[in-house]
Computed example of a mutant assay.
Amino acid sequence: MARSSFYYWRSDGCGPDRRQVADARLAARMGRAPQVRGTYGVPRVTAELREAGERVNRKRIAWLMRTAGLAGALAPQAPNDGPGRGDGPEPHRPRLHRA
């Protein structure tokens, strides 16, 4: 008998395994996380779960969020008009001498 067949038989082959149960539990906890700023990304969700006493990895949380269709929002940024077009100092321009 193949080793994999034995372990499949031993686990009964039906029902979720421990990792699937743990993933479902973590996904439920991610949905209940208090959203103070309105959006949560992977680092913040990971930190919240660790503060709550969970031993989780950032990559696992990222995978769970991807499979659940959750994504953090990017913070709005000021428009970039390019160099020398803002309130800053003038860009350096070399002086050219003609003979």
Rank of each mutant, 00 (worst) to 15 (best):
A2G: 09
C14T: 12
P94Y: 03
P16D: 10
D87Q: 12
R29S: 06
P83F: 01
A62Y: 06
D17G: 13
R95Q: 08
R55F: 04
W63C: 13
P94G: 04
A28Y: 00
L74K: 07
G13C: 11
A99E: 13
P79C: 06
R37G: 08
H97N: 15
V42T: 08
F6A: 14
S11I: 00
I61N: 03
R19S: 08
W9S: 12
G38V: 13
Q77R: 15
H97P: 07
D17E: 05
G84Q: 11
D12C: 13
L96D: 04
A52Q: 11
R60S: 11
R85H: 02
T67K: 04
G15A: 13
A71M: 14
A52L: 12
S4Y: 09
A71F: 14
E48N: 15
A2L: 08
F6I: 10
H97I: 14
N80D: 09
L49G: 02
D17Y: 01
R93E: 06
A27N: 01
E54R: 12
A47R: 12
I61R: 00
R25L: 07
G86F: 06
A78T: 08
Q20S: 15
H97S: 14
G84C: 15
A47G: 08
Y7E: 10
A52M: 10
D17V: 02
D23N: 09
L96G: 00
R44F: 07
R18F: 02
G86K: 04
V56Q: 03
A24I: 06
A75R: 02
